[in-house]
Design a protein around this nucleic acid. Structure first.
Lengths: 156, 156
DNA sequence: TTTTCTGCAAACGATTTGCATACAC
DNA sequence: GTGTATGCAAATCGTTTGCAGAAAA
């Protein structure tokens, strides 16, 4: 069983596709590879991925990119995130479903998105489950404010 | 000083507009009134507001609705929220900036959006501020899962 | 061979914008 | 009177879809 975190190999992808009756294609492999290779630059949009493909002299069309991002999200390989900037963005999912995701700090001045690794929402989730009977599968938390650089620039 | 919560009167609106050099218009007044009158049905989109206007035999154009929703959000009278359903939605802001907003529970099955009134993010915010130097102004929290009805329907 | 996938171009839906007119101040 | 706001229609932008040919199983 391949339970390695963060990195998805070609065979992991083939297996997940096969489970649901989808086919392995070079396009899907290549698009996933972009996320693995660019794990430093998070939150890529379809357009971002498409531009990287064109830099790599790849002939994959934009519609295929959209379809692959959708599919990879459905398979749980990518996670779709939305920062309200007019397009969907995607990041590699951490393999363990029990580990909740990091939070996003969005600077209202410079628009930078910072990741914050801790979670700490367990108490809140327990509280919600108890009071509302809602079974939580996942959450998405965004904090809006000023990043440390913009704060520093302001007090100069 | 008019510090009443939830409800914005015409004079509050005029004052906030005036502060920033905007003009009071019957269109802006009428659009705000829709949110006050329909405070039960939260999360209205531009299209929703436009439809209510047409029911009321109002001649306000859709572009004006979009411009007014933007403006009212900029003034802090409305808050823009996004449930990933392809359009921006808006709700009345609570007047007190120290009171953070409720959270949204989004059922992945029936797509219902439930409001959860408690906040409880103070510890987490303090933690973030300490570790990252990020000054938090506001947050947006969405929980995805199954609502109690869908859970009940599933175990039948 | 059979079904799914791709690439292209056209369609789509939410939102924005240019512009002439109307209105608030 | 001056500058902003409105309404309309056209433009825009991200995303989806129909379809014919290409490729995976």
């Amino acid at each position: 069983m391949s339970e390695n975190h963060q990195l998805f190999g070609t065979e992991d992808l083939r297996g997940k596709l096969y489970e649901r009756g989808y086919k392995m294609t070079p396009q899907r492999k290549e698009i996933l590879k972009i996320f693995v290779d660019h794990s430093d630059c998070h939150h890529m949009s379809a357009e971002d991925v498409y531009n990287i493909l064109r830099e790599n002299k790849s002939e994959i069309g934009l519609a295929t990119v959209y379809r692959a991002l959708d599919l990879l999200s459905e398979l749980g390989i990518l996670v779709q995130v939305d920062f309200g900037d007019g397009c969907s963005r995607y990041e590699l999912n951490t393999a363990d479903p029990n580990v909740h995701h990091h939070h996003h700090l969005i600077c209202v001045k410079c628009k930078k998105v910072i990741e914050f690794e801790e979670d700490l929402l367990d108490d809140l989730e327990a509280n919600i489950a108890k009071k509302s009977g809602f079974q939580i599968l996942n959450h998405e938390v965004k904090f809006f404010g000023y990043c440390s650089e913009c704060l520093a620039a302001e007090t100069e």
